[in-house]
Nucleic acid binder design. Structure first.
Length: 624
DNA sequence: GTAGGGTTAG
């Protein structure tokens, strides 16, 4: 008896220490002991909550009826938030209602946070809507709940509602809402928020800054993003990562890599998100050696969230499928992204059997693909085809040259065709010289996607191949009028962990050995012609004579990079070239001759896929 | 008590 009494006293001083915690548990499980010598009730609850013994804590709550007060509820809700325990939290909430307890703003905010963390946004919103008095935390918690789960419209609407209320947003609110500022409307609002922030001189706030710069990147506004990044004096891992990944996601991989190098020299620290972004950039550049370096570094550092990093490693190693597969096979845990990355790897290498539907189009197995699609439509696979599957079918039909069929297929689809779908059909019309369908599709595309330069280029090329120079000029004029710029063609080659970059028709020599490269290329052109190379000038862009055309083609960046590789590496060393756009037929041919005559393995990665060329034969089977 | 960056595909 005395011992228990003494122990009870000690609870007041050491409520959290382990032996006492277990004693409380035994008190609660042996009701008799508890009623004989009840320890301080608040301490019992504290101990149970901090031990995460939610079930016991709820029993305690029920037993206390009306005696629950602020501290007790606070403790319980905290424990529920920590454990993301929705059901238990709901019972605490119900208890408040049942006992007619009127929670203050703080506790209601805790309820919003609890429900949000359990992904029960409807319940969270109900709490918010019932609040007569809301503070900045109430609003912000709900806005960020929407933002983090991708409900951008709801986040923006709520933010606007907040502006109409008496509560002023703070830096937490701005940070949260800015991440939902995407799309035309969101971006416009985001710009207004930016000026509001500047007025409030919050512009150096590091969280707000990273959010802002991410918003500008998502809108493709590199200049503004850069400005935000350069302006605040302080930087941290997140803001540095945000700018690197911003460049990488816009496909500006070389710039992303350059920035990573610079920031590293300036003492930036990196974490797994940083490396994931850098790996994306390296993968885009197919920079295998640099990727290997990062891989080794990541292994050494034993970074957390290794799955995410391995996913990017699968992708980067797609230059070599055996490595990719090895990483994939050894993964202790795989996500849907891991599988997708691996499948895409196979499909880009034309290994259709492994890559199923989209692989069929790269592997020239369109009938297999069509069968799979038929099975889907008939419900045999348990997967109902969505627009992307229809996209795959269009893709595989057009790759096989079945342009007319693809056109009819699109017209009969149960979905509104996307610009991407029309785009792949237009590309096929060009390759297969189908002017009737091409003209229709081209003009349709210029209507729905007038910003995209590629469409103008293909349509104008289509007219050019038919010798319809008037129409070529018409499309070009339209392009000028709308101020649409074509992304210039660029190629890279990695030598000794340095990336050498080549541009197609650059007035300023982009590479110091460019003249040397040109001289070698003339030599190659003669040598290859003797071996049977016939320049394929069908993708002609201008109304010029044959000799001129050939000159233009010799200037293609992938030919420059390949030739540079030839003169800068030892005999028989493999050549790895990366192109930012789709490679043209002529360059593909040229690469085949390089591989055959110089006995080189050529790895050419273009915007769509990998070409592994060996002894004049390409892994793509000439479908790409 | 409320906040920012990330992996695949398109």
């Amino acid at each position: 008896m005395n011992l228990l009494r003494k122990l009870n006293c000690l609870f007041h001083y050491y409520p959290k220490s382990a032996p006492f915690s277990s004693l409380v548990s035994s008190f609660t499980t042996h009701q008799l002991t508890l009623t004989t010598f009840p320890p301080n009730p608040q301490i019992v609850l504290t101990t149970l909550c901090s031990n995460g013994q939610l079930k016991e804590a709820l029993i305690e709550m029920a037993a206390r009826g009306l005696e629950m007060k602020f501290e007790s509820y606070d403790m319980l809700l905290n424990a529920c938030i920590k454990k993301r325990a929705f059901r238990e939290g709901q019972r605490v909430h119900a208890h408040m209602i049942k006992t007619r307890y009127l929670p203050p703003v703080y506790l209601r905010n805790r309820l919003i946070i609890l429900y949000s963390k359990c992904d029960r946004l409807r319940e969270a919103r109900n709490v918010l809507d019932e609040m007569l008095e809301k503070d900045v935390v109430s609003w912000t918690a709900m806005i960020s709940a929407y933002s983090q789960r991708g409900f951008a419209t709801e986040a923006l609407d709520l933010f606007l509602e907040m502006l109409r209320s008496v509560t002023e947003p703070n830096e937490f609110t701005f940070t949260a809402v800015l991440s939902s500022c995407t799309g035309t409307f969101g971006f416009e609002l985001g710009k207004q928020i930016h000026s509001l922030i500047i007025k409030r001189t919050l512009d150096t706030h590091i969280f707000v800054g990273s959010s802002l710069l991410d918003m500008y990147f998502k809108a493709g506004r590199i200049h503004e993003a850069r400005e935000v990044f350069e302006s605040p004096p302080e930087r941290d891992v997140v803001s540095c990562t945000a700018i690197i990944s911003g460049y990488a996601q816009l496909g500006l991989d070389a710039e992303a890599l350059e920035l990573f190098r610079r920031l590293n020299l300036e003492g930036m620290s990196s974490n797994y998100v940083t490396y994931a972004s850098v790996l994306t950039a390296l993968s885009g550049l197919a920079a295998l050696d640099l990727g290997k370096q990062v891989h080794n570094h990541v292994l050494r550092c034993k970074l957390p969230f290794y799955v995410v990093l391995q996913n990017s490693l699968i992708d980067i190693k797609c230059g070599n499928l055996i490595y990719s597969r090895r990483i994939f096979d050894n993964m202790p845990e795989r996500t849907v992204i891991s599988w997708t990355a691996m499948l895409v790897g196979y499909s880009k290498h034309g290994m259709g059997r492994e890559g199923v539907l989209s692989g069929c189009s790269h592997g020239g197995m369109e009938n297999v693909g069509l069968e799979i699609f038929e099975e889907m439509v008939n419900g045999k696979n348990g997967v109902e085809p969505d627009i992307e599957h229809y996209g795959c079918v269009v893709d595989l039909l057009v790759r096989a040259g079945r342009v007319e069929e693809a056109f009819q297929f699109i017209k009969k689809m149960p979905f509104e065709p996307t610009a991407a779908l029309w785009g792949s059909l237009l590309g096929a019309c060009k390759v297969h010289s189908n002017i009737d369908v091409g003209e229709f599709v081209g003009h349709r595309l210029l209507e729905i996607d007038p910003e995209s330069a590629g469409n103008y280029v293909i349509l104008s090329n289509l007219y050019a191949s038919m010798g319809r120079w008037e129409d070529v000029r018409m499309v070009r004029d339209l392009m000028l009028k709308k101020a649409v710029k074509k992304e210039p063609g660029r190629s890279w080659i990695e030598l000794d962990q340095t990336l050498h970059s080549f541009h197609a028709s650059d007035p300023i020599p982009s590479h110091p050995r460019r003249e040397e490269v040109f001289a070698k290329m003339k030599e190659l052109s003669i040598k290859f012609k003797e071996a049977g190379y016939v320049p394929d000038l069908s993708c002609v862009l201008h109304d010029v004579d044959e000799e001129q055309k050939e000159k233009i083609f010799l200037g293609h960046s992938e030919k420059l990079a390949l030739t540079f590789g030839l003169i800068s590496t030892s005999d028989r060393a493999p050549l790895r070239v990366i192109k930012n756009l789709r490679t043209c037929v002529d360059c593909h041919n040229f690469a085949k001759f390089v591989s055959k005559i110089y006995m080189r393995e050529v790895y050419l990665k273009d915007k769509n896929r990998f070409h592994h060329i060996s002894m004049g034969v390409c892994s793509c089977g000439d479908y790409w």
